[in-house]
């Protein structure tokens, strides 16, 4: 199988968060990013964080039906990581990135900017979630993050039936929405 075909399969896997695909991508490309970050004043943690960010950007791309990877995953991840790390370096004022420019780049500016805006919104969401208190937080997380079924949630949270749990969930959702938009409008 050619690398391009293989990358296409991996991307399809990533879109459905298939573990084997995630592992393959990590195994094949993390060492390169690790080198980039560590040779540029970063730590092992910085490398992991940056790579995770890049994986998320790639994931968002993979969800887009019209998206066609016009370069290899390797090139894409490298470009995104370089862009993210450069910005971080500038933020903490350690100037100058010495990347061995043997790697190709692709234009990823738009993707990364989009990702950064999304991260800001998710940050607001995370804040809102942390503010609504229990059991609302766990209830919403169980449904929207862990993607559990309502029946399962009802049993776990000891509601008499799924309908009651659902009613409660919607009340919580309203509160979350209010908190979210309060901060969202404030930020914008």
């Amino acid at each position: 199988m050619s690398t391009i075909e293989q990358d296409k399969l991996l991307l399809e896997g990533l879109a459905i968060q298939d573990k084997a695909s995630i592992e393959t991508i990590y195994k094949s490309h993390f060492p390169m990013i690790q080198n980039l970050i560590i040779n540029n004043k970063g730590s092992m943690d910085d490398a992991s964080d940056t790579f995770q960010e890049a994986m998320i950007v790639l994931y968002q791309k993979s969800l887009d039906n019209e998206f066609q990877l016009n370069c290899l995953i390797k090139t894409y991840l490298y470009s995104v990581c370089k862009r993210i790390w450069l910005k971080k370096l500038q933020q903490i004022q350690r100037f100058g990135l010495q990347a061995d420019d043997f790697e190709e780049y692709v234009a990823i500016e738009e993707d990364v900017t989009k990702h950064e805006k999304q991260q800001d919104r998710f940050h607001i969401m995370e804040n809102a979630l942390s503010k609504i208190g229990e059991p609302c937080k766990s209830l919403l997380e169980a449904y929207y993050i862990q993607k559990k079924h309502m029946n399962e949630i009802a049993a776990e949270f000891k509601y008499t039936n799924a309908d009651n749990a659902k009613t409660q969930k919607y009340k919580c959702l309203m509160r979350l929405k209010k908190l979210f938009f309060a901060e969202y409008k404030h930020e914008n």
């Binding site: 968060q17 994931y59 998710f122 862990q146």
Partner: peptide, 9 residues
């Protein structure tokens, strides 16, 4: 989307 991302992380 937030949920998906948390799951991915």
């Amino acid at each position: 989307q937030f949920g998906n991302q948390q799951a991915l992380k």
